[in-house]
Each structure stands twice: as structure tokens, then as C-alpha cells.
Amino acid sequence: MKKLLGIGFWEIIARIILRNRLGFIFGIVLLTVGLAMQWKHIRFSNTEANLIPATDQVNLDYNQFLKIFGEEGNVIVIGSKDPKLFTPKVFEAYTTLMANLAKDPEIGLVL
């Protein structure tokens, strides 16, 4: 009895694991196979969770914005404040760039 009381907690846990290692290994393998079989039920979402309440003013403004401008997506905006843009040579190069971008089948709209 004195010997059992002198053993620490982790020594007891280690002894249980080592004496029953085949059972633990079998249990881990069984758990891994069971979880792997559930892989077909996993669904991924590209939308983020809405953490703001639906009645919050920021959320109401955002929903109003979506009604006006539509759903957000992958958008690239190229802008320039350069006054040289409206010179014939630079404007022609910019127009050529836009035409080449519009030819790509992955691009939905060039404005």
C-alpha cells in the first residue's frame, strides 16, 4: 500500500498507457479511420461569418450597399491621376491594355 501511495500521478498514467499500449494504438487507429470516413461530409464556405447583429446600423448600411451595387467579388480597379493619361500616345497604350485584358476568358468585365 505504501508503494502505491509513493507513486506520482504521471507515473500511474504512464504505467497504464504502457501496459495497455496495443489497446490505445487500436483505439487511435479506429478513431482515425472513423473520422476519415466522415471527410465526405465536410463543406467549405468562402463567405465569412456575420458577427454584427442584423439590426446594427453598419450591417443595415452594408445590406443597402449590396442592394445598389450587387454582391462583392474579386475586383481589380486600376486608376490613375496622371494628366499624361489623356495624351494620345499614353491613352492608346491604356486602351490597348484594356482590350488585351478583355480578351482573357477569366475576366468578366472591363470598363
Rank of each mutant, 00 (worst) to 15 (best):
R19S: 12
I28R: 01
P88I: 04
P53Q: 05
F86D: 15
E48Q: 12
L97R: 00
A54Y: 04
L111H: 09
K89D: 12
F24A: 10
F44H: 07
M98E: 13
A99W: 01
N100V: 03
F26E: 06
G8S: 14
K103A: 14
K103R: 14
F65A: 13
I13T: 05
F26C: 11
I16C: 05
G70Q: 06
A36M: 13
E72R: 15
F9S: 07
I42K: 01
G70L: 02
L111K: 14
R43L: 05
G6A: 15
E106K: 14
F86K: 10
I25A: 13
K67L: 07
P88C: 05
K40C: 02
P105W: 01
P53S: 15
I25G: 01
G23D: 07
F24W: 03
F9P: 00
D104W: 01
E106Y: 10
K84A: 13
L60C: 03
L30Q: 01
F9Y: 11
L51F: 07
N20Q: 07
N74C: 05
N20E: 08
G73N: 07
K40S: 14
I76R: 03
N74S: 14
N46L: 13
G27N: 03
E106N: 14
K89Y: 05
D82S: 10
P53K: 08
T55A: 15
M1T: 12
V29L: 15
Q64Y: 08
R21K: 14
M98F: 00
N59V: 00
N46I: 06
I7R: 11
G34F: 11
T32P: 00
Q64S: 09
F91R: 10
I52G: 00
V29F: 11
P53N: 05
Y94N: 08
R19M: 11
E72Q: 15
